[in-house]
Write a protein that binds this DNA or RNA. Structure first.
Lengths: 262, 262
DNA sequence: ACCTGAACACCGTTCAAGT
DNA sequence: ACCTGAACACCGTTCAAGT
């Protein structure tokens, strides 16, 4: 059995935000409800299937009603991405106080973001590719809340300004590369009905293998290439990154632009 | 001045493929011509602006004519991605014979792919996120031609089977993370007209900085965060990866699944 | 035999007319 | 004052009617 990374379900019904201005009538259409419905829809049917009209139908309303709560399809996509990261940011395991040291903190955050990618493989590409709202925001840790707590935590563990920023960027690259590769690999065309159907790995392999004439090296290594080693690679590359960042705390620099300040 | 990475233009008119079956009338609509026009169009106007109808207009035909050469919009996107990587694969600098050793080879390929990302920032997200056609294909080096020469080159330099495959995966993660981060950062909303207009970095910075109340750490590090250190980070992370892969040649393993076979 | 106009079944979004 | 039906300006794609 593949060792799935366990993580508390982000889907669980959340307590309604304690916002006194929300009327709370019988199932009022609200922005969070629209965003949550969109996430559920994409998880089930894929990004390409999400239209304003179909999403509205899911909620029992007409498409135009959605425009009261989100200002358009593009903004809705951004809101989904934000909601996913905000959920993680509120999670106990990634609070700075929960971490033993900065390495532990980075491991917790890394596995938290990985859990998001695995629970929402159809949405994660959006987390990676939607243009950031400001020059200091980078995917996938792309909210001010995240950057703030991330940088503050590193500094509280002895990182200097430049070192913390270098670590933020290096950490983001690492997450982006590994998680995007992972979700790309498991991106099999979705037939909305037979989701339970595991795509018969062996049959898929055989079908694809016929086209390998003329590529002897690939053919010879096909089994190794198709092997799912994502979890191990992720862990291995993460530890390697932590080693690299350790050197950084000891005074080295990654983006090292010493000299421009005079 | 920012040190742009120089690379021969992939856009240059290529000699027509020596395919005797192509009639070569006056400007016949061909698949390569459609694909090339699509790349040019997205570079100029952005992915969201590409429609079959508008692309057809660019070529002086109606939309339906395109379906003779590409079987639909999705296939066109895949064809664009393939074309970009095929161009690079044909380039002198990334031929195995051109490389001094495997490190040199990986550096050449890395900078080649980075050049693609920088020349086609609107298209690179597609390279990263389009679902691969087979389980052994991973972005961004996502063609059998690339995998074949990549793996063969590493093996000719002493990599074992598992080591070569581990290196392929680690290299792809590295490229994906860094290049996607880079193009995401420079993703500024495009007004088709004023492309020459450099978005006045300082003004953009000031405008975005007003919203930093409540995020003192980000505010304090905003300048460092917004600094464009992508080239240095890329080089630094690449060297770090090469060190990691060196250990791998010496017999260590990344995905290390020793034990499941016994 | 080949090409393409008109048409189909959708989109996102707007806005006037309804309550 | 608020909500929404009908409408607008598009999509990707098909297919019959033209040459």
């Amino acid at each position: 059995m593949t060792s799935r990374l366990a993580w508390p379900a982000f889907e669980e019904p959340m307590p309604p935000p304690s916002d006194p201005s929300s009327p709370q009538r019988r199932d009022p259409l609200s922005r969070p409800r629209v965003v949550r419905a969109a996430i559920t829809y994409i998880d089930a049917h894929g990004l390409g299937q999400l239209t304003m009209r179909r999403l509205a139908a899911t909620l029992g309303v007409e498409a135009m009603s959605l425009y009261k709560h989100v200002s358009g399809r593009d903004h809705l996509l951004d809101a989904m991405v934000d909601a996913l990261l905000a959920d993680l940011h509120g999670h106990d395991d990634v609070q700075p106080e929960a971490a033993f040291d900065w390495r532990d903190y980075l491991r917790r955050v890394a596995h938290g973001v990985r859990a998001i990618a695995q629970q929402h493989p159809q949405i994660f590409p959006l987390v990676a590719t939607r243009p950031p709202a400001a020059p200091w925001i980078q995917p996938p840790l792309r909210s001010l809340e995240w950057i703030e707590s991330f940088l503050r935590t590193l500094r509280s563990h002895g990182f200097g300004d430049r070192q913390a920023v270098d670590a933020y960027k290096a950490f983001n690259s690492f997450l982006l590369g590994h998680l995007l590769l992972e979700v790309a690999n498991q991106q099999v065309p979705i037939n909305p009905e037979d989701r339970a159907d595991p795509p018969d790995e062996e049959a898929r392999f055989e079908a694809a293998a016929v086209a390998l004439d003329g590529y002897p090296t690939v053919a010879g290594l096909a089994r190794l290439l198709a092997e799912d080693t994502a979890s191990l690679e992720f862990a291995s590359a993460l530890e390697s990154l932590l080693v690299r960042l350790s050197g950084l705390v000891d005074g080295q620099t990654i983006s090292g632009s010493e000299g421009t300040g005079g």
